[in-house]
Design a binder for these strands. Structure first.
Length: 276
DNA sequence: CGTTGCGCCTGTTAGC
DNA sequence: TGCTAACAGGCGCAAC
């Protein structure tokens, strides 16, 4: 499941392989892949003959800078951007592809089709379609204290606030559980009842988790997340909460539990992650 | 207005 | 053994 570190790994791969390349022979192979106002034909026409100026990211969104506008990409749950040789035989679940002018192709593979491509104008180098997406934990200019103050205005459980991409972006279910564990905070704690200092600690724990995951190339449970070369990440072995139910907490030895929360699994230590 | 819950989608796994 | 139901979950939007 690609979250912030995984999307950043993909961005780096695309920056290396696709930036500076001219696109051509673009094919949208599944109608649902193109979202917002653009049509499949719009994307094909826009990409063909375009130079990729650079590849950028905010939260879980990444985009190919085409100048006036961008190809905006969201990987959803199972999306992959793969660099392939020009003569590679089309694989399963390839939803769209384009060719690069160096004997390579770019595939968008997505088993569950939650991901998509779309076109968005760029204003101040930012896609207008994601104006509502907040900065993320890997952004070196992030004002952690300002985010913490905004989080405190929310009368919601803290895990829900962490997953709200309009407040702080890039966090999904896996890293929410990991940063809550690291900071010793219960996901059901109300954000409004936490101190700003405690919220800052939580966000800093998140930055540490994201940095560590990025160094390991991200988290791969299966082949749903891989980098542009099809390789898995290794952060899974470093997980302390997510998927660790029934195993002893690495901090206090109590058994990690899994509970339903917002219709999703939540993993935490009942001893060292208290609500109050 | 702020907050909460649900459906989209497909492959894998748990359970009867 | 073979089938069905549950599960995985980011996101947008409907509903409260």
């Amino acid at each position: 499941m690609p979250e912030l570190p995984e999307v950043e790994v993909v961005r780096r791969g695309l920056q290396e392989h696709a930036a500076g390349r001219v696109l051509g022979g673009t094919e949208v192979l599944h109608p649902r892949v193109v979202r917002h106002d653009a049509s499949a034909r719009d994307v094909e026409k826009r990409l063909d003959g375009s130079l990729v100026l650079g590849v950028h990211r905010r939260g879980k969104f990444l985009w190919l800078d085409l100048g006036e506008d961008a190809l905006l990409v969201h990987l959803g749950m199972s999306g992959q951007m793969l660099i392939k040789d020009a003569d590679a035989v089309l694989g399963r679940h390839v939803r769209a592809r384009t060719h690069l002018d160096d004997q390579q192709q770019l595939w968008f593979v997505d088993q569950r089709t939650f991901g998509y491509w779309s076109l968005s104008p760029l204003i101040d180098a930012q896609p207008t379609a994601i104006a509502h997406i907040a900065p993320d934990l890997l952004d070196p200019r992030l004002d952690v204290e300002a985010v913490a103050r905004r989080m405190k205005t929310k009368d919601s459980e803290i895990k829900r606030v962490l997953l709200d991409q309009g407040i702080i972006s890039g966090i999904g279910n896996i890293y929410a559980d990991e940063m809550l564990w690291r900071a010793g905070v219960h996901g059901g704690q109300r954000a409004s009842r936490m101190s700003v200092a405690r919220l800052v600690e939580l966000l800093e724990a998140g930055q540490e988790v994201m940095d560590a995951a990025l160094l390991q190339g991200g988290t791969s449970f299966d082949d749903l997340y891989v980098n542009v070369n099809g390789e898995s990440g290794y952060f899974e072995v470093s997980l302390n909460a997510y998927g660790q139910q029934g195993k002893p907490c690495k901090r206090c030895g109590e058994l990690i539990v899994k509970e339903k929360f917002m219709g999703r699994g939540s993993h935490f230590c009942p001893a060292c992650q208290k609500k109050y």
